[in-house]
């Protein structure tokens, strides 16, 4: 009887996602190790720009994460391999909820630019909200939907209700979807996010023309392991992140140094 109960308990744990949530590899071994295999599925992750000006970099990093971890959302994804069973459980939609003010400040997402990151723009549903309350509501609704694989919530500076963040985390854990909260500036408020990132733009390798996008990434909180800072480059040709370990050609303060105040 006890074994029977144990089995039932195990089944319950598995369905509720308490046991070992799935991870999505980012394709960068150094990052994946720190994250314990990759970015955790079914959890809320917070990505903050280093400052207002770095919002596009934060958005780019978020799109890169999505493109490298959810192949079903990429434009290169083939509909039905061999014309056989198209898996019914493949979620193929990104829902991007943004505040009106965020869009007015940094411009609306441009489909052709999203395409540059390997993502299929037709998989994107844009939602704009006038209030933060609506933003959180829309994110939560989307997380409850089985067809949505990634929910991006983009907001400007300002606090966020701790209860709402907790609700989002729970909703994400419940559905297994990836929830990304994009913030215009880093914040120090308590949060139940699984990881918190601070992302800024990093100068290109070459001097004469802008090369592939580069990101100065700082992992400021990680529930599953240590934190750290990296310079990542988005490789257009193979559509994934690569670690830019090369020495900087210029004496630019690219690396995030925790002891030094970054502008």
């Amino acid at each position: 009887m006890i074994t029977e109960l144990r089995q039932r308990l195990l089944a319950l744990q598995q369905t509720s996602g308490i046991e070992g949530p799935g991870t999505l590899s980012l394709g960068v071994p150094a990052l994946d190790t720190v994250l314990g295999g990759g970015l955790v599925h079914g959890a809320l992750h917070e990505i903050a720009a280093r400052g207002e000006a770095h919002v596009p970099a934060a958005v780019g990093f978020a799109l890169g994460v999505i493109a490298s971890s959810c192949p079903a959302l990429c434009r290169a994804f083939k509909e039905d391999v061999d014309g056989r069973d198209k898996p019914d459980h493949v979620r193929r939609t990104v829902l991007w909820v943004a505040e009106d003010m965020a869009l007015a400040e940094s411009g609306a997402p441009h489909g052709a630019g999203i395409d540059d990151f390997g993502l299929a723009s037709e998989r994107l549903v844009m939602v704009t909200t006038a209030h933060r309350r609506d933003l959180l509501w829309a994110m939560e609704e989307a997380l409850h939907c089985r067809a949505v694989s990634v929910v991006i919530g983009e907001m400007r500076a300002g606090g966020i209700d701790g209860v709402a963040v907790r609700r989002l985390s729970l909703a994400a854990a419940d559905s297994g979807a990836l929830a990304l909260l994009l913030r215009a500036t880093p914040s120090s408020d308590a949060s139940t996010a699984a990881t918190r990132w601070i992302v800024g733009a990093a100068p290109s390798m070459t001097r004469h023309s802008p090369s592939a996008p580069r990101f100065a990434v700082h992992l400021g909180r990680n529930r599953y392991g240590p934190v750290g800072s990296w310079i990542l480059e988005w490789s257009d040709s193979d559509e994934r992140f690569i670690l830019a370990t090369h020495a900087q050609p210029m004496a630019a303060p690219a690396l995030y140094r925790s002891h030094r105040q970054v502008a």
Partner: peptide
């Protein structure tokens, strides 16, 4: 499922706020 979600969001926020590129 997706249609259901889009409908609900549109009903609450207005269909002009739930869009596609």
């Amino acid at each position: 499922e997706l249609c259901r979600l889009v409908d609900r969001l549109s009903a609450r926020l207005g269909s002009r706020r739930v869009r596609r590129l």
